[in-house]
């Protein structure tokens, strides 16, 4: 079993995620408190926090993938020269849907020398801060509240207004809230990833303006946000395995076939 799958049993990392989560939750409470005061609607505050957090996480993870891609490439290039061996990577962008979510996760093997730093950023900022900053249970509770349901039915009449969208009526409030959260959250995550990819490319300077950036099939890649497998050392295996000769990156490199 890969050690990367057991990161969550590491006490230091658990503490890191906990600290990041506490800060994220604290910031959320402050933001919600402030927005509740100004907007007078707690549900609106939760939507904004969740959308902002989805954007931030998308940005972070995509930027980390960009950085890891470059570092991983450098590392394996060096190792490839030394050992002349494939490092056992799989193509990260299989053409078909048969290689799915977990298939891509398995593509990741080793973190480069900078892998530790990116791993700590991913766990502390991503899993911890943004994970604690955003809240799914709060989103679900707000939906129930807006629908007018309440644990003590005596205060049920005020439930809708308590969340601040009461003037719209329960059905419209719930529909609006769900649409804003789900569509807004997904759009924000995609937008954050696009920004993270763009900024990462620019921020990496000269080195990434090489074939690296041009040959990447798309701006977005998979990364495991919660942490069992370290996605950060990953690069384009086709390049690293056969770094000394041109390779079509779309062709899968399967180490079990004795390809290398």
């Amino acid at each position: 079993m890969s050690a990367d799958k057991l990161l969550h049993r590491h006490w230091g990392l658990i503490l890191l995620v906990g600290l990041g989560g506490a800060v994220g939750a604290g910031v959320r409470l402050l933001v919600v408190e402030g927005l509740s005061f100004w907007v007078g609607a707690g549900a609106v505050a939760t939507v904004l926090v969740n959308i902002a957090g989805a954007f931030g996480l998308g940005w972070l993870l995509q930027a980390l993938v960009k950085a890891g891609r470059h570092a991983g490439h450098q590392v394996r290039l060096q190792e490839g020269r030394q050992a002349g061996l494939a490092t056992g990577l799989r193509e990260r962008h299989p053409a078909g849907p048969e290689a799915g979510f977990h298939g891509e996760r398995q593509a990741v093997l080793q973190a480069g020398p900078e892998g530790t730093k990116r791993r700590l950023l991913r766990l502390g900022l991503g899993t911890g801060f943004f994970g604690g900053f955003t809240t799914y249970s709060g989103f679900a509770l707000d939906t129930v509240t807006l629908a007018g349901l309440s644990p003590s039915l005596t205060s049920g009449a005020t439930a809708g207004t308590a969340a601040g969208l009461g003037s719209l009526g329960p059905v419209l409030s719930v529909a609006l809230y769900l649409a804003a959260s789900l569509i807004g959250g997904l759009a924000a995550a995609l937008l954050g990833m696009a920004v993270g990819a763009a900024v990462g490319r620019r921020g990496s300077g000269d080195s990434l303006k090489s074939a690296d950036a041009r040959r990447s099939a798309g701006p977005m890649e998979s990364v495991d946000p919660l942490g069992s497998v370290d996605p950060l050392g990953s690069g384009d295996p086709a390049r690293s395995v056969h770094a000394d000769r041109p390779v079509d990156p779309r062709v899968a490199v399967d180490p079990t076939r004795g390809d290398a």
Binding site: G21, A22, G24, A25, R28, N50, G53, A54, G56, L57, G58, L61, P97, G100, F101, E104, T127, F130, G131, G132, F133, T134, T135, Y136, S137, G138, F139, S181, G185, L186, A188, A189, L190, M193, G218, M220, E221, S222, V223, P225, L226
Partner: peptide
């Protein structure tokens, strides 16, 4: 519950399923 559950990761995972 607020820190345990996470909206951002859920949305990110949706993007990954879409990209896959």
């Amino acid at each position: 519950c607020g820190g345990f559950t996470t909206f951002s990761t859920a949305m990110y995972e949706v993007t990954q399923l879409l990209l896959n």
